[in-house]
């Protein structure tokens, strides 16, 4: 399968196979009008299979979202058809309004317009807890 390389933009590589569409939605790429390619199940020496997203425009990606959804991705920043920067996002310390608390006893279930904030409580296991009720985030 051949997809043209991009001149100025971003390539999100090494996405765990099957996670590409989730990332696509979380990054709101469906609202953009530039060329975007989502490649699923591309062969990978390192991973066996991987997903890739190519975005043919310069943009600021939310690294917190990327780190949370799949901390193993590589972000390649392309300028004049050359990769000028490789970014490896980390699991962010805090997530604000990315996920919602599912605990029905949490104040966020009734109080309007308060940010849903989660903090990283266990980096090894990628565990986040709601800052208000301390419930574990459910994927």
């Amino acid at each position: 399968m051949k997809i043209d390389s991009i001149n100025n933009g971003v390539v999100i590589d090494h996405i765990r196979a099957g996670k590409g569409m989730e990332l696509y939605h979380f990054l709101n790429l469906d609202h953009m009008d530039c060329s975007i390619a989502l490649i699923k199940n591309a062969p990978s020496q390192k991973m066996g299979k991987k997903d890739i997203i190519k975005i043919d425009t310069e943009l600021d990606l939310d690294l917190d979202i990327l780190g949370y959804i799949d901390p193993n991705v590589t972000i390649n920043v392309i300028k004049d058809s050359v990769c000028v920067e490789k970014i490896h996002p980390q699991l962010p310390e805090r997530l604000t309004n990315i996920i919602q608390c599912k605990n029905p006893r949490c104040i966020t279930s009734v109080e309007q317009e308060i940010p849903h904030i989660f903090k990283l409580t266990d980096r090894k296991n990628g565990e986040y807890r709601c800052i208000y009720c301390e419930s574990k985030a459910k994927n």
Binding site: N103, R105, C106, I107, T108, S109, V110, E111, I114, C130, I131, Y132, C133, E134, S135
Partner: peptide, 10 residues
Amino acid sequence: RHPKEGAPMI
């Protein structure tokens, strides 16, 4: 005192 968890933090 509040029945919802996290209310005093808010």
